[in-house]
Design a protein around this nucleic acid. Structure first.
Lengths: 329, 329
DNA sequence: TTGTACGCGTTATCAG
DNA sequence: CTGATAACGCGTACAA
């Protein structure tokens, strides 16, 4: 079923079919009707591969996230996907497993597919990746953090500011010995920046940053359980813990309930990223609300602006965050 | 940067470059070396669009899920994505919002991109979609449930059997008045089938299915809270509730804790799908473990088999399930 | 408003 | 083992 078959059935040239489909205004109503009739009669579905090759355009964007399984990225993916589809584009999704080398391989594959644009969650890249992006000229939006050295465009919030704000919030509430739990810092600039924000806040308050109460834990609920126990038992003076990633805070709270440690009486708990569950637990957990869906939407929007030549700036969008004070602190 | 540029630099024809890249064995070592040198010298990235058009093949598969945001699909997406990438393929993901009409539009778009294969989560489709699949001949794997009327191939578990097994399990434990909470039945054959399984188990036990204790609720934690309250307060004889979807059971358990209703003393709680959280709560929640990651992997594998012509059967894979008995029942 | 000729970048085919 | 030639299915540019 090629365009040619439609053309023959409608008694016109393929060029007219192409126009009837892509810019119906530029074709007479009569011809348009005949083409539409022929299309549905033979069930013609255009070949976008051929179209894209010929027009040297593409209606597909690529996305690389560190982990598809991680719930945190779902909202962003949804935001990107929604906006793209509203504009007739599609999304190819891939998973780097937090590896810059894998990211490079994936982006190379996307460039080979001649995607119209890229969204990358990570902001630390291999030199080869940076070179490839420069040579190929694909528009790129980075998402993970408001990096100082963007490849191109950035849409995010500041992990440093958010972690600093939460730490200052805890200090303002009167907590003095605040532990920090992050995901492993290697290959994860979000965790690194959150730690920087935490340290900055302590410094502003004239408090020392004590490495003994700064933990790195793998993602997952059990990590949160383990972390809170280690912190409270090894350093009993800890009066609050800031869990700057994943569902660690939930695990910690559940563990406190099991051990009948009062929250926030014995130890206060704060989290990062407002997942549904935090509001439902007892006590509800104080957290930083991040604009994840909006990050996805805006990323797609500025990507489309660039793709359609409506903009050529290297935009940098800071979508901010919000501290949500709840019963756990 | 076209293949032609590489060819000129290496002093060979484009055909030789193509072979050196796609089947290195079929060119002399010397030529292979020269081509590789030229490729990296000019930073050549092949154009798969052109390649796919010419060879009439594709290295992209399409996936349609009801909701990207819903965590439940993440494992499956990961499984598909992993296997595809190991074989040099990529995944385009789209979101139908539980709408058959939208699903039809998305599949049409995927067919327009000439994807090599499709994975669909839903198993109820519009007639137009079924016709399109038949005409285009794309291999399709359906995932959501072991449908009796598959488009092509199916990889799943039986929602009927799983719900029936859990209900029988509860009956065996001695519960006699078992409520059921599902997601809305419209456009969701999973929910419909789970209800069928529940009813079948009750019938086997000679118990009536009482519509007053069968609720449909929207997804989300708060739904679970509301459902358990409605069931227990309006029908006090209810001694167990089977939450056959989403995170409803978690919401219910948290609500019981708030109201100090003993679980399972006042009411037992069972869930569907073994999300991490269920094991961590207190009491841990009894549930059905579904092979979500494996569903994704196997789907990709049989799709690739078909794509590569290694198989032409209309495979039907039942990956089973497992009842996980915990403290909540 | 419609059609013709050509090219997009690659691979299949067949000849050498 | 290598190359010439002709597609693949559509859009661009220009002509009618």
């Amino acid at each position: 079923m090629r365009m040619r078959d439609v053309a023959e059935r409608a008694g016109v040239s393929t060029m007219t079919v192409s126009r009837a489909l892509n810019s119906p205004d530029r074709v007479s109503p009569e011809v348009r009707r005949r083409v539409e009739e022929a299309v549905s009669a033979i069930g013609y579905v255009p070949n976008r591969l051929a179209g894209n090759l010929s027009s040297n355009r593409s209606n597909v964007a690529g996305l690389v996230v560190p982990s598809i399984r991680n719930t945190l990225f779902s909202d962003t993916i949804q935001g990107i996907s929604d906006v793209l589809r509203r504009h007739g584009h599609h999304l190819m999704v891939a998973d780097s497993g937090y590896s810059p080398a894998e990211e490079e391989a994936l982006v190379t594959a996307f460039v080979a597919q001649r995607v119209a644009g890229l969204v990358l969650h990570n902001t630390t890249h291999t030199p080869a990746l940076r070179a490839l992006i420069r040579r190929s000229g694909v528009p790129v939006v980075e998402n993970g953090t408001l990096t100082d050295d963007p490849l191109d465009m950035v849409v995010s919030y500041s992990n440093v500011d958010a972690a600093r704000a939460m730490t200052l919030h805890l200090l303002r509430l009167g907590y003095r010995r605040i532990g920090l739990v992050t995901l492993p810092l290697a290959h994860n600039e979000r965790s690194q920046e959150r730690r920087r924000g935490y340290s900055a806040a302590l410094a502003e308050a004239g408090l020392p940053a004590d490495p003994r109460i700064m933990l790195e834990m793998p993602p997952g609920l059990p990590s949160g359980c383990e972390a809170i126990v280690r912190l409270v038992e090894m350093t009993p003076s800890v009066d609050a813990v800031f869990f700057a990633g994943d569902v660690l805070a939930v695990g910690a709270l559940l563990e406190c309930q099991r051990r009948v440690w009062a929250v926030p009486g014995r130890v206060a708990i704060a989290s990062f990223d407002d997942i549904d569950l935090l509001r439902q637990l007892n006590p509800a957990i104080t957290t930083v609300r991040l604009p994840r869906l909006e990050v996805g939407r805006r990323s797609a929007e500025i990507l489309l602006d660039r793709i359609h030549g409506r903009s050529s700036e290297r935009v940098r969008v800071d979508l901010g965050f919000e501290i949500i004070q709840r019963a756990s602190t």
